[in-house]
Amino acid sequence: MASRVWLITGTTSGFGRNLVSSVLARGDRVIATSRNLDPIEDLEGTSDNLRLLQLDVTAGEEIIKCRVADARAIWGRIDVVVNNAGSCYLGLLEEGGSALLRKQYEVNVFGLLDVTSACLPYLRAQNGGTIVVVGSRSAWTAETIGLGPYGSSKAAVHALAETLSVEVAQFNIRVLLVEPSAFRTRMVRTADNYNTQNPIAAYDDTRRENLSSYSARDGAQMGDPAKAMEAVVDVVRGEGAAKGKPWPRYLLLGKDADRDVRAKCKIMTEHLDEWREVVTGVDFEDEDFGVH
């Protein structure tokens, strides 16, 4: 296959910046985007296969459609769309309220869907393409104090990616849901990301301990973002670790992800076993719905 064209959102640092390097090293072309171009202007002219494009995923459907049209015009196609742009807000749910959730979802959920929807007409017209959705292990670990805003947004992303994968399969479009655990990126800077507005006295000790816990992890995460993005490129291109394997749909990354997803599946299986009579005992008795 000729070199693919990748449109990657959120390329200022972390996963996005590493993915740009990984893709270019394989000989593919990249349209690297950022809300502002200043943080990525150092990439200008580093490769003939690289173009920079200003794209704010929160700009709204119509503006994003125009920016994606500009992106597609660069090389006449887009083969791989990587929804990497994201934000991370931590804090207690009662203190943050719905305002913090809306702020979180604006980038991680609504922005992701707007970019995807703007790209889909081009992928359908090409009868093929790949959509990479960067979710998080946090979708599986919601039982974590302070994770509510971010974790719930990534749970929404998880569900959207699963639905999208079956809706667009008829157009030969693949969806890959990437769910990394804790990686050493710049997205989480606890002092800036932890909500301390509207403090409620009853939570003072909880908030203090929680903030301290998150701060201690910052910069000490086990995950190497460069290795993670090499794995993503392997899967999309069917190379390296992915050679000869079927399309996975999911790509969990990190030892923490392996541990936590297995633990969550065990919890749910044990629940179903313990409560099976209740779970299965609430249907109409005299009808056969084909569920056995």
Rank of each mutant, 00 (worst) to 15 (best):
A2Y: 07
S3D: 11
R4L: 15
R17N: 10
L19V: 01
L24E: 06
I31N: 02
A32H: 10
T33Y: 13
S34P: 07
R35C: 11
L37W: 04
D56Y: 14
E61L: 05
I63C: 02
K65Q: 15
A71Y: 05
A73Q: 14
V80A: 01
V80M: 02
L93A: 13
E94Q: 14
E94L: 12
S98P: 08
E106G: 05
E106P: 04
P121S: 12
L123K: 00
N127F: 03
G129C: 13
I131V: 15
V133S: 02
R137C: 09
E143P: 01
S153E: 11
S153L: 13
K154V: 04
A155M: 11
A156K: 05
A156D: 07
L160N: 00
E162Y: 08
E162T: 10
L164M: 15
E167H: 04
V168K: 05
A169P: 03
Q170A: 11
L176F: 07
P180H: 11
T185L: 13
T185M: 13
A191N: 12
N193D: 14
Y194H: 02
N198I: 02
P199A: 08
A202M: 08
R208K: 15
R208Q: 11
E209A: 15
E209F: 07
N210L: 10
L211D: 04
A220F: 08
Q221S: 06
M222W: 10
M222D: 15
P225V: 10
V233S: 03
D234M: 03
A242H: 07
K243S: 11
L252G: 13
L252N: 12
L253Y: 08
L253H: 11
K255M: 03
D256R: 01
A257W: 00
V261Q: 13
I267C: 03
E270A: 09
D273G: 09
R276H: 13
R276Y: 07
E277H: 14
D286K: 11
E287G: 03
E287M: 14
V291W: 15
